[in-house]
Amino acid sequence: MTTLRLGTRRSALATTQSTWVADRLRAAGHDVELVEITTQGDVSGALLTAIGGTGVFAAEIRKALLDGRIDVAVHSLKDLPTAPEPGLVVAAVPAREDPRDVLVARDGLTLGELPAGSVVGTGSPRRTAQLASLGLGLQVRPIRGNVGTRLGLVESGDVDAVVLARAGLARLGLLDRVTEALDPIQVLPAPGQGALAVECREDRVDVREAVAVLEDPDTRARVLAERSLLAALEAGCTAPIGALAEVVEGDDGLELSLRGFAGSEDGSIELRRSLVGPYQEPEQLGARLAQILLEDGASDLEHTSPPAPQDNSEPVS
């Protein structure tokens, strides 16, 4: 095969993730060239909810794949819409980073140590809803920006803390800034958080074979369950959604344990449900748990976005 052209967003986190994939492909004997692509999510200063959600990071890269300008793309899996893209396939899902959210707070404080009235920055309705449901009296402020921008808000005193994905900080070598890893019992991550998607054209058998070395079956099963839940809930409610699947040992072998969250952004309503199912049926498990959440009231929840801040920095993956 000639050199693999690997498309990536230009942010520090995106290029770090893509370089990680490229290095593993090179170790498998392939020549790889990174091709930087600017997406709508990179140039807009509005919150994701105001500019179309997760797909804004993927659309331009996917277009480059379909046009043949690149051979393979690396996405943060949570940035991909749940609906399949005609002509494209997620050819590999590498081993997942720790999917938890983390707190970076002034003075090394944990979530429980932040005084009532403390300002916590996040651009995520999911995090906003779960933080509010804890009843700690925190003020949540919507923010945008790359990892450095968000950490800088804490350093400058603009906010008392920010909540970020642990995976991004780990990939950037910034875990020393974390003051607390948030237990999923308190804050469930976004479906697919911490995982990468390696995507290519469906008809490129040569590329699919080349990237197959990156595949991690356990991660694939976990994210399929989470994204199946997300897809079913997106069709039936507009509430913020969290999900986390884990591989567990059952009486008859490996199983998947899936937890899901749907709630109101003011924290007045929170639905948390869980279900265990066969390892080989992740999508069915996600759909079943979504149905339970819908029957228990998720279909009556509405999502309302906070005002978008004026911030033209690159967003964090």
Rank of each mutant, 00 (worst) to 15 (best):
R5Y: 06
L6N: 00
G7T: 04
T8G: 00
R10T: 14
A14L: 13
T15E: 14
S18F: 07
W20C: 07
A22E: 01
R24C: 07
E36R: 15
I37T: 12
T39H: 00
D42I: 03
L48S: 03
I51A: 03
G52W: 13
T54S: 15
G55T: 11
I61Y: 05
K63N: 13
K63Y: 10
L65W: 00
L66N: 01
G68F: 00
V72H: 07
V74I: 08
L77H: 12
T82V: 15
T82F: 04
A83V: 14
E85D: 14
P86Q: 08
L88S: 01
V89E: 06
A91T: 10
A92G: 07
V93L: 15
A95Y: 07
A95F: 07
A95M: 11
A95N: 06
E97K: 12
E97Y: 15
E97G: 11
P99C: 11
R100E: 08
R106G: 14
L109E: 14
L111S: 10
G112N: 13
A116M: 12
V119L: 09
V120E: 11
G121A: 11
G121Q: 05
G121D: 05
T122Q: 13
P125D: 04
P125Y: 10
R126S: 12
G135C: 13
R141A: 15
I143Q: 06
R144I: 01
G145S: 06
N146M: 04
V147F: 01
T149N: 13
L151C: 12
L153S: 07
E155A: 15
E155D: 14
S156Y: 08
S156G: 03
V159Y: 06
D160S: 08
D160F: 01
V162Y: 07
V163W: 00
R166I: 06
L172S: 09
R177Y: 05
T179K: 08
E180G: 04
A181Q: 09
P184R: 01
A190G: 14
P191F: 06
A195Y: 11
L196Y: 10
R201G: 02
D206C: 09
E209V: 10
E209N: 12
A210T: 06
V213H: 02
L214V: 11
E215P: 02
E215G: 04
D216K: 03
T219W: 00
R220M: 02
R222D: 01
V223G: 00
E226H: 05
L230H: 12
A232K: 08
A232T: 09
L233Y: 10
I241R: 05
L244Y: 01
A245P: 01
V248N: 11
V248G: 04
E249L: 03
E249R: 09
D251P: 13
G253R: 08
G253E: 12
L254G: 00
L256Q: 00
S257Y: 13
G260K: 03
G260M: 09
F261Q: 02
F261W: 03
F261R: 00
A262F: 01
S268D: 12
E270S: 15
E281Q: 15
P282D: 08
R288A: 14
Q291N: 13
I292C: 06
G297L: 09
G297P: 00
A298R: 02
D300G: 06
E302G: 12
H303I: 09
T304H: 14
P307W: 02
A308T: 15
P309Y: 02
P309F: 02
V316P: 00
